[in-house]
């Protein structure tokens, strides 16, 4: 992930937001979607993505579904009811954070 220290704290929110917009997604699809949306600026590595997905699953925010696709098993993630509620909270937190940072870094725009 580029600028990893800045983006690290937002990884969970990014995942939840993407899953909120899509019914279900698999790991590789998430990395590609992020790459596409940020025009290659943000690259989520496997080493960061999967532990985050597994943690969200263990916390009950994500549900999994395994399906056979192209000669292999694929694990799809989707939001649970708690996950959907948490997405709203996380997005509000992030918006607040961006606003605060804006006020600090560029007071004229805030």
């Amino acid at each position: 992930m580029s600028n990893s220290k800045l983006y690290k704290g937002s990884l969970t929110t990014i995942i939840l937001k993407l899953l909120n917009e899509n019914d279900k997604m698999y790991g590789y699809e998430i990395t590609q979607r992020v790459k596409e949306l940020t025009k290659g600026e943000l690259k989520i590595t496997e080493g960061a993505l999967y532990p985050a997905l597994h943690k969200l699953e263990a916390e009950g925010l994500l549900d999994v579904e395994v399906a056979k696709v192209d000669n292999r098993l694929r694990k799809y993630y989707k939001l649970t009811e708690t996950g959907t509620k948490e997405t709203v909270n996380k997005l509000e937190e992030l918006a607040e954070y961006i606003k605060t940072m804006q006020a600090l870094v560029n007071p004229k725009l805030a």
């Binding site: 496997e46 080493g47 999967y50 532990p51 263990a58 009950g60």
Partner: peptide, 23 residues
Amino acid sequence: QNKAKLLKDNRQFLKSADIKIWR
């Protein structure tokens, strides 16, 4: 290019596995 990053995930499963068990 990616082996080290990929295997990092393998070492981090323990924490999630423990949370899952206790839940």
